[in-house]
Design a protein around this nucleic acid. Structure first.
Lengths: 359, 359
DNA sequence: GGGCCGTGCGCAGTTGGATTT
DNA sequence: CAAATCCAACTGCGCACGGCC
């Protein structure tokens, strides 16, 4: 119950003696109002610490100055970093931000999407590894776009739906990491990632595989995890090490999996950075501080979150259309740290300390 | 621009032949409408996949079924976990959630709070370590409460403002951890935490100090960090180790600081778990998987986030008042892992593996 | 007769009281 | 009279129109 006298335009009108509509114009379209009245209105508005009621103004104008962000799981570091950047840009443009985290649960995602048209939201940013191409999701998204709500995706395009997208060049990132592992550590190499269904993980796998193939092996080992977190990395890696051939190096499709893998290797008698290498993806804040510090494929979160948010806001404001925009692709760059430091015997043309080491 | 024909009540009215108000009542207050008409309305509503427009319904009724969550920094694991739980509970009650992350920037927090009354939000959950007791914040909060917007805080009470609060028993948690360190590792002990201004950190420091004092030392070492992240923990710990006396054990006021400290100790020639112990606070997901696995003071995030959110929602619905409620306090429990495993020489009554170890 | 301002309606619902059966 | 329904006012704001000097 947002109770009383919330400093409305009516109050300003009463206080100044002007009509409500004049107050409205003074605030929104200053050029239509006499300089003098405008100043007067602005002063009273300030005294009453007036801000327009979003619900009311949105009802009439259609724009609520509010975006929604749909993420796979806000508790995962990657999504929380994206969220921070999105929130920052929103605040700069005085847009509010609604958060919807669906915990990689398709039903929950669908339920969120179904409600979007009635939530008073001008646009939505979608960021998840889960496949958005399945028919139910596509249908909901189409409905949303049709209702005039703008959509931007981060990390994957949506087939048959013309929506701006910001991508990482994960294929190249995986290539860099795999080349590094192949040259410094040799074969065989393993890829640790979630089951099919994660789009970026699939790109990373493809990049990994292409390099492994070019080094003679057919495919490389694919270790399938049941999820994206530390535990999943630990379990899958440990299970593999108990029965399968030990790889010389492991490329994990995110840093949490990498951390779990490092621990599993240690528990089963291996030493990461000495007899086996591990490289993660994402280069989370903790990577330089782990023991051993974690090599990882980095990429600017701010860059892609900022690009997505700015794009969406300009679409909402009508400054840009969403039609036929080629996806923006942000670069990935390998950061080598202790967990994959080339062993003394191998090629030694690299600096011993990769950039991004602790200060 | 939420464009066209968004399945409105008017459409349902037209389709069924009833008036708009009857449709409204059929949806919101079924007991006032004939069973038959209700079913008819519900059916058409379903066919049109109707959901009420939040902005419009909130305008008149005052309740927008939307909460706001204000957190210190969404990119920190603790806050992102809280956010996930809050989001989950909101979804269960079909409340929307607005996120405001102020990056521990007081000005940004104030700006967010100033806008709250106009954002179409029924209530707000505040969770931050930053001090909410300063006059500017208090004034804004008072204004918010006065406007009929409900407030719940997590982690600290607000002086002179009667607002429900959910707390952790951090004092006890720090006592448990410090007792463990004192008994198994001996003196001196150090506390690693941010400068004064963080309320929970202050509680933890007090709990730490009381135990250290009871063990004869005056106060224990306080190592002050410049922030809450890995880097801050690393820098402060390294700086201290270079000049100060080496403690036998370190209690960090969160897990990120602990991770940074562990790395700093290693870089300066120490071995955590052998000649120095480290205990963190929060028991983040990664704690069992680190090398060494990290001892930490745990606490259920779901419990406190759920309690806060449910409480706020019941207040919004008018089912509960916010007056004179004693703070709910959730327990803290120490989980001992490798980073503070008692050295072989010391007391050996504990199981070698603390609970919460990897599976 | 062109800046400046007020009137009235609409947005999509909610709600109290009047009206019907 | 009670149950079921409808009318009209109302929420805060934006915009098209028209009136006034």
């Amino acid at each position: 119950m947002t109770k009383p006298d919330t400093g409305t335009m009516a109050k300003i009108a009463e206080a100044t003696g002007f009509s409500i509509s004049t107050v409205s114009r003074a605030l929104n379209r200053p050029e239509l109002v006499a300089e003098k009245t405008r100043k007067q209105v602005l002063k009273v508005a300030d005294d009453l610490s007036f801000h327009p009621n979003r619900a009311a103004s949105g009802l009439r104008s259609g724009s609520h100055r509010c975006l929604a962000l749909l993420v796979g799981d806000i508790s995962q570091p990657w999504y929380s970093m994206i969220t921070k950047s999105v929130d920052t840009v929103c605040a700069e443009h005085s847009f509010a931000l609604q958060l919807k985290s669906f915990g990689h649960d398709r039903a929950k995602a669908l339920s969120y999407l179904a409600r979007i048209p009635y939530e008073g939201v001008d646009g939505i940013i979608i960021n998840t590894g889960d496949d958005l191409g399945i028919p139910e999701i596509r249908a909901q998204l189409a409905r949303i776009v049709e209702r005039g709500i703008h959509v931007v995706t981060i990390g994957q395009t949506i087939p048959d739906l013309d929506v701006p997208t910001i991508l990482y060049d994960d294929y190249s990132g995986a290539e860099q990491a795999t080349t590094h592992l192949a040259e410094a550590w040799g074969m065989p190499l393993a890829f640790l990632g979630a089951i099919r269904g994660s789009i970026p993980a699939e790109d990373r796998w493809q990049g990994f595989r292409s390099v492994v193939r070019s080094h003679g092996q057919t495919d490389g080992i694919r270790i399938v995890t049941d999820g994206y977190d530390y535990k999943a990395g630990y379990s899958a890696m440990a299970a593999h090490l108990r029965v399968g051939p030990w790889p010389r190096g492991v490329l994990a499709s995110n840093d949490q999996l990498a951390v779990g893998a490092v621990r599993a290797i240690k528990d089963l008698g291996g030493t990461v950075g000495t007899d086996i290498a591990v490289v993660g993806f994402g280069d989370l804040d903790f990577a330089p501080y782990l023991v051993p510090s974690l090599s990882s494929v980095s990429g600017s979160v701010q860059e892609i979150a900022g690009a997505a948010t700015n794009r969406l806001i300009s679409m909402v404001k009508g400054e840009a259309q969403g039609t036929a925009i080629p996806p923006i692709t942000a670069p990935r760059k390998l950061v080598i740290r202790e967990s994959s430091q080339p062993p003394a015997s191998a090629s030694g043309e690299r600096h011993p300390q990769g950039e991004g080491a602790y200060p």
